[in-house]
């Protein structure tokens, strides 16, 4: 078990190095860099000292050095906690990310919790009452959920909230709390705002997960061990939850690591852009457009870490609940 965890951690580290490198390459792929863009702007404004300004910046950010040197310097500094500077904001990347990192994790977690809390009972109900009216309603809703893109839903909700309900759904905090230090009030305010984007991002995943839960459970309920449990005198509720669901849920944990988390993080980024949420997503998209490479690179690394940690946790949970994996 310890071996298994260590091995997984080893893979995770290798993965982060690879992804950061590839990410860095991709950012460098388009012709020109941020400073070339900036030079054009300054020239257009007729700034005479443009050339020398840019040269100074180029030296400061190390853009005049070879690619490998740039990458290594950045990577080594990254390990020391210095993520480099953002060109466009002219501030350290670290300051820019700051709380956004926490908010990204909080939003992803909230989305995940909502997805599971909704999908598991609905999927179980759907399977246990197969072909009932309830099952048909849940099935229809889950297909709509799978089909509707998250950002569209975000736009619709935005429209309704602002135009119809005249309510503020943008951001994760009310105005008075945005720059306030953390307090109980701020947390409550966060929760009040958080559920809307979390729910929106959860819709697609929930639809899919309901289908999977229903399918798995129907298959599991046909297994002899379920009948055997009933023949031992267990009440129906225990047969379903302690035996059928308990076994049918394991594949969902595998999916959680491999498919659900990337989906959640991607969905969160889109919804964050539409609803203007202080997560990494909008910053990342912006940095790509502006060729702000250290910012983009840092975002990529953090997304990767988030995914890998999520994956590792899913693996651990699976090993914990499934003896077939644990005792392998």
């Amino acid at each position: 078990m310890v071996n298994y965890i260590l091995r997984r951690l080893g893979y995770a580290v290798i993965m982060i190095v690879l992804v950061s490198f590839v990410g860095f390459c991709i950012i460098k792929l388009p012709p020109g860099d941020f400073l070339t863009q900036k030079l054009e702007q300054l020239r257009a404004r007729g700034d005479r000292s443009a050339e020398s300004q840019i040269e100074a910046l180029r030296a400061k950010y190390g853009l005049d050095r070879p690619f490998m040197v740039q990458y290594t310097t950045w990577a080594v500094n990254f390990l020391k906690g210095d993520f480099g500077e953002s060109f466009q904001y002219e501030r350290p990347v670290k300051d820019l990310l700051g709380e956004r990192l926490t908010m990204t994790v909080v939003l992803a977690l909230a989305t995940l919790i909502i997805t599971w809390v909704l999908a598991i009972p609905l999927g179980v109900y759907s399977a246990v009452r197969q072909y009932s009216l309830g099952d048909q309603i849940i099935t229809t809703i889950s297909f709509i959920g799978i089909g509707i893109p998250g950002f569209l839903l975000a736009l619709i909700i935005l429209f309704f909230a602002i135009v119809v309900l005249n309510q503020d759904v943008l951001g994760l905090f009310s105005k008075e709390y945005i720059d306030a230090p953390w307090s109980v009030g701020k947390v409550i305010d966060l929760l009040k705002h958080l559920w809307i984007p979390a729910l929106i991002s959860a819709v697609t995943g929930t639809g899919g997960l309901i289908r999977i839960m229903r399918g798995n459970l129907l298959e599991t309920m046909g297994q002899p061990f379920v009948e055997a449990a009933r023949a031992r005198g267990l009440r129906n509720r225990d047969v379903i939850w302690k035996h059928a669901v308990r076994v049918a849920i394991n594949p969902l944990i595998v999916i959680l690591g491999s498919e659900a988390l990337p989906g959640i993080i991607g969905g969160n980024a889109l919804v964050s852009i539409v609803l203007n949420l202080p997560t990494i997503g909008p910053l990342f998209v912006d940095s790509l457009r502006r060729l702000d490479m250290y910012l983009a690179g840092t975002c990529i690394v953090f997304f990767t870490i988030l995914l890998l940690v999520g994956n590792l946790l899913a693996d651990l949970v699976l090993a914990w609940v499934d003896p077939r994996i644990r005792l392998e």
Partner: peptide, 29 residues
């Protein structure tokens, strides 16, 4: 799913099924 039949099942009438390979719940000892 009533009290009486649940007492009978397993308690007064035990049953062994045809499929031994999959009649035990895989996550329990």
């Amino acid at each position: 799913d009533g009290e009486v039949i649940r007492q009978i099942r397993g308690g007064e009438i035990g049953m062994i099924f045809q499929e031994p390979m999959s009649s035990l719940t895989p996550v329990y000892t």
